[in-house]
Design a protein around this nucleic acid. Structure first.
Lengths: 337, 337
DNA sequence: AAGCAAATTGACAGCGCTGTCATTTATGCC
DNA sequence: GGCATAAATGACAGCGCTGTCAATTTGCTT
């Protein structure tokens, strides 16, 4: 039947407890013994029973990834983060579960508690936008559940991963400025998301640094969707003094802007430069391909999970790691006519 | 601390075993006892410990959803199925784990075995395109792991959920025929996917039924991506006798076709009707919005999981349920000029 | 009311592992 | 070499639940 820890112990002529120690990388085992046990495990293709480990050791080897897909239409983004988290969990022999957790609704805390007491995750990975939902963070700390965040707004003692989105946004606007653009518009994302704030701040910073006063008409509200990009662009194109370039806070909206440009007979990039943020697969498939910021989502999921797992295993407290961005210059931006 | 089964037993003045019976909906408990135990559980907010249940009962209350995202660029589709599977699992108090399982690579079987022996799922949900990967199906049967499939190609004794994609494809082509189109092109999806075959078959069926001989130049290969849609469309538009309508095998490719139409100065739907398949969020955001087939992906995930769980709990063998499609007629299709 | 089968309930061991603590073995020092 | 100390190993109980099977109660028959 199934190979148990006891069988390995017998094969290696040690006690079950010693095998357990090797399994869990505990100290106080001689190298010779450790190797012998490892060899026996290998030879017998031993697989510890997760439930038995969990029951006896009072931990679950489970990481839960929480998301709110209701407020985040970019399923590609979440899927990539999920992939990265999963990779890290696999490497550390943890299992992962994904849980949608809609913030709306007042039974939010109850649902969260049920999740914890039903599944007993050892830790939790938070994804935008719930990285900054105060009641959730409060409850996590109260229940003493370790967590790591992907792109949290509030830093502080939070562990996880971030990208300097403000600097990235500034870089992409500087790219437009170098091309000679002066009337540069910005389409904002969903109002209270951290991503929207940083990208707007980066835009403002670059414009100010270039000595350009902000023109309120050139900054329009969007909602991270293709449709909101189209609508925002229509407003911009209706202006007496049209912008020569548009920086949209994500690729979906940028695609909407390009679409609307087609409606208005504006050729991209000849009549209008457009750039986005995220480097979604779509951005490469468009023609012309979109100038954008590559955000290593998969890598970020992986790093967040690694920080969490490191903290769980007691390897220090875990960091808030910052990953670099890449400015992807493609065909959708060109010098001003 | 934690409320255990034993505590509930004491509160209800019965033996632990009886509480266990109530918990698992077993027979041979009087209604009076059952109610008393249920009341005690409720009052104490009892949550069974999944690991203990799993260890003692030799089952995991775990469903694994397998996918191969390498060959399936439509992350929205998978995310929706995942949501549906999760909903069903939650309702039955099962937990769910998602696992990418790339079919390429000869260590495929080893990776699958590791998955099973590491996590012991009680059952597995298969998503396209791995629903039809013969070595996987063989191994699943050998290892006696119950499974349900979403849109399997081969029916037979398989349980799960399907949609009559061929009839849906036929319906959408008939819609084009009714609008007066005769030169109707088709962009095929990835060659060996069931979805591609059915949609092509539906196209042919409709054309044949209308007495139109197949023109090989009007049937071009794509790969389910936006880019492949653009390229396919360029080939079609280069023909001496251009099609007046294009039916692409999914929305991403249809969007590519619309994009290419813009390049060629063709107005949709005035000069060209375009339709897709899947009803992705994108299809509604385009202008004009895309005529397409609505496939209830979330619902399908839920149904597949329910069939699996039903079979696991011994409520009959489980069925292959067929769900209806909806032809979504939007602005991208119009009468032939 | 006794007698019997069927339904209901309970006692107890054990699932596979780890925590605690006792015991054995190695190491350093004078 | 002898002793104190530290490192390595092992014995054993028990995590919270369910399977097995025995004990008890119930319902029905005669």
């Amino acid at each position: 039947m199934r190979v148990r820890l006891e069988d390995v112990a017998r094969a290696a002529s040690v006690s079950p407890k010693t095998v357990s120690r090797v399994l869990n990388d505990e100290a106080n085992v001689t190298d010779a013994t450790r190797q012998r046990v490892r060899a026996a495990m290998e030879a017998m293709d031993y697989r510890p029973h997760p439930s038995a480990r969990s029951l006896a050791g009072n931990r679950s080897f489970l990481v839960a990834m929480l998301y709110d897909n209701n407020d985040n239409p970019a399923s590609t983004y979440l899927a990539e983060i999920q992939d990265g988290v999963l990779e890290a969990c696999d490497a550390h022999r943890y299992s992962m579960m994904v849980r949608p957790l809609r913030m709306r609704g007042d039974d939010f805390i109850r649902r969260f508690d049920a999740l914890i007491s039903d599944h007993h995750p050892d830790g939790v990975v938070l994804t935008p936008p719930i990285t900054d939902y105060a009641p959730l963070l409060k409850r996590l700390r109260e229940s003493n559940v370790p967590y790591a965040s992907v792109s949290p707004q509030r830093r502080g003692k939070t562990i996880g991963v971030t990208m300097d989105e403000q600097r990235a946004a500034r870089a992409i606007v500087e790219h437009l400025l170098e091309l000679g653009h002066r009337r540069i518009a910005h389409v904002i994302g969903i109002a209270d998301h951290g991503a929207s704030r940083w990208r707007l701040a980066g835009y403002r910073e670059a414009m100010a640094a270039a000595g350009l006063p902000e023109d309120p008409a050139l900054v329009v509200q969007g909602a991270f969707t293709f449709g909101s990009g189209v609508e925002a662009a229509r407003k911009l194109f209706a202006l007496a003094k049209r912008p020569t370039a548009v920086f949209a806070a994500n690729d979906d909206m940028a695609t909407g802007v390009m679409w609307a440009a087609g409606e208005y007979g504006l050729k991209v990039p000849h009549d209008l430069s457009v750039c986005g943020f995220d480097d979604t697969p779509l951005s490469r498939q468009l023609w012309p391909a979109l100038t954008t910021i590559q955000q290593p989502s998969r890598e970020m999921g992986k790093i967040a999970a690694e920080q969490l797992l490191g903290a769980l295993r007691g390897h220090g407290a875990g960091q808030l790691v910052q990953v670099p961005f890449v400015l992807q210059i493609r065909g959708s931006t060109a010098a001003v006519p």
